[in-house]
């Protein structure tokens, strides 16, 4: 059962990821990205990580992709002239293949030393993750909250219309 789920999710995830980078229209790319993110949430459920699966769906598919779709629609983006020179396209594919080959070789040559799946009950409970987050990693948690605040302030400062002297200019 787990094997079938893994195979199905993997096929859908890889196909939709390929479609994300090959479709000419950005809005279609964004919608295929949602499919990929949901497949990854499925993997997280298989890997006993319900908390990560939930925030994947809520934050990634729910918030980040909606933001991307909002920007695409706000700017009324259509497909643009994609005239990247064919040599650069081939170079990009070659580099990506090299990355893929290097990681495949690294993984396959070490696959004997990788740990096999331990059978345990109650691994990855949300309560345990929260416990770790608020005790051992509390400092990092607070730093991340400051980072998010900075990002929001930075985004607003950048979007603000330039040269509007009064605050009520528009």
């Amino acid at each position: 059962m787990e094997t079938i789920l893994f195979a199905a999710l993997a096929i859908v995830a890889i196909l939709s990821a390929l479609l994300v980078i090959t479709t000419p229209a950005p809005i279609v790319s964004a919608l295929y990205m949602v499919v990929t993110l949901f497949c990854l949430a499925g993997f997280y459920v298989l890997l006993a990580a319900p908390f990560v699966a939930a925030i994947q769906v809520i934050v990634y598919a729910g918030a980040i992709l909606v933001l991307v779709l909002f920007v695409i629609m706000l700017l009324n983006l259509r497909k643009i002239e994609e005239k990247l020179a064919i040599t650069w396209q081939v170079a990009g594919i070659v580099v990506a293949t090299l990355v893929l080959a290097a990681s495949f070789i690294a993984i396959m040559s070490n696959s004997g030393t990788l740990p096999s799946k331990p059978d345990v009950e109650h691994f990855g409970k949300v309560a345990d993750v929260g416990n770790l987050l608020f005790t051992k990693y509390l400092y990092a948690f607070e730093v991340v909250s400051v980072l998010l605040l900075l990002a929001v302030v930075g985004a607003v400062a950048m979007i603000r219309k330039p040269d509007s002297g009064e605050p009520n200019a528009d």
């Binding site: 890889i14 980078i21 643009i80 994609e82 990009g92 594919i93």
Partner: peptide, 18 residues
Amino acid sequence: ATLFAIGVMGVLTRKNLI
């Protein structure tokens, strides 16, 4: 690794910023 390589390919071969 496959998904990562697909991402690398997307960054290197596309021109649309989004």
